[in-house]
Nucleic acid binder design. Structure first.
Lengths: 228, 228
DNA sequence: TGCTACCTACCAAACGTTTGTTATGTACGC
DNA sequence: GCGTACATAACAAACGTTTGGTAGGTAGCA
């Protein structure tokens, strides 16, 4: 009962076990409930185990987020695997982000929760920013390919389209997490398709929505002086 | 120095003062740094003052978020005030959400940060969900009006368009907070206009992006069983 | 006017608990 | 017997909350 010592020797595997326990605690109670004792209890161990594998709490959290990110990237992506290229592939990438499954919902909940601590920790913030930059690059390539295939009209820079698409899914994730019953998987997919239809459509008369720009300027952004 | 008793009689004003101190602490260090002592120090008072006006920490946080929400709603909305109706109004509403000013960036940072604790606190989560629902309703009305004015093509339900637009801005907010230098105010506005152009454009051949649906089904959402 | 009574508004200090971290002990495989 | 892999226990610090007290205002009554 005492010394079962499972999976001896594989240091990294044990660290992964710890990370999983961290995820479970985070998924349940968020970062406010993330304590060393809670993690230890979650995996039926002592805090001594945690400190044996991680120098401190911050390192533990950073590793858990890193592994979660890597796991998400390497996980079988049901939609992307069967999609071809171009627009269909962009669609698949977007769908694979959304909380369409319970597992993905839990992961996304952790991810959204991490934004609070990340925004106050420059190192974590930089890592997050880099992750999103990477994802944007991938999307931009699919957009470029879609344009080459004639699925998307030229005129918009792939980077801009990718940034917009990423914003869209990210915001949708948040909405879903707060109102799961209002956003079943079916509706999430429909919303993505609606969005993609807007991309595929030819651009409207340029400047149509900005007709009243003359007097109002760029939306009256005259107060204060920019972000940061 | 001891008994200056400022602003006597206005109990509610004092609670607002406390809330402002809460905002300042949250904007700086997020919810992880939100302690009664930090708030008290921020306003040069004792923790006893806080407990005098609020029964406990949770009540203090909830009130601060509530007031922040109300303040944001009642704040002069530079864009919305000058916008007419329909699509221009929808555009204004979206722009007023974005962190185009330093003040709005600070508010948005608090808001994003609150998602972690809200997702683990059913009462807070319900309040958040209700807020977003309200905002969606407003957007949907502008969408309906735009459709009446012929600025938007029929075919999409205003509710769906509103949900999509809200997701878009919300996600953009997050992106901006993590990479402010990549998303200056100018670019945020351009992205919104790009998005609105996609709405205004006539829908593409229906089902174009879902061409390969046959074998792949609805994006291969076959693993696991739905959210929640 | 002056005394008593009671109120709100706060401070300073302390309470018991929980936190991250550190130190010490111990069982096991080599 | 020696290092790795933990458990156990202790640590100071920080936490939310409670308590006791003071200062000043207000109201009532003489």
């Amino acid at each position: 009962m005492s010394g079962m010592t499972p999976a001896r020797g594989d240091h990294e595997a044990r660290r992964a076990d710890v990370s999983e326990a961290v995820w479970r605690v985070l998924a349940e109670g968020g970062f406010g409930a993330l304590t060393l004792r809670a993690v230890a209890a979650e995996m039926g161990a002592s805090t001594g185990l945690l400190t044996h594998y991680f120098p401190n709490k911050r390192a533990l959290v950073r590793h858990a987020l890193e592994v979660l990110d890597r796991r998400s990237a390497e996980r079988p992506r049901p939609a992307a695997e069967r999609a071809g290229a171009g627009l269909a592939m962009l669609r698949a990438v977007l769908l694979d982000i959304l909380p369409l499954s319970a597992q993905s919902a839990a992961d996304n909940r952790i991810w959204v929760g991490s934004w609070d601590v990340a925004l106050s920790d420059p190192e974590l913030a930089a890592e997050h920013a880099e992750r999103y930059r990477r994802a944007r690059r991938v999307m931009a390539e699919h957009v470029a390919e879609a344009r080459r295939l004639g699925e998307l009209p030229p005129g918009r820079a792939p980077q801009e389209v990718a940034a917009a698409a990423q914003s869209f899914v990210l915001g949708l994730v948040v909405q879903v997490l707060f109102a799961p019953q209002e956003y079943p998987a079916q509706r999430q997919i429909e919303l993505v398709d609606l969005y993609l239809d807007g991309l595929a459509a030819a651009p409207a008369r340029p400047g149509a929505t900005r007709a009243a720009d003359g007097p109002a300027g760029p939306a009256g952004v005259r107060d204060s002086g920019g972000v940061r």
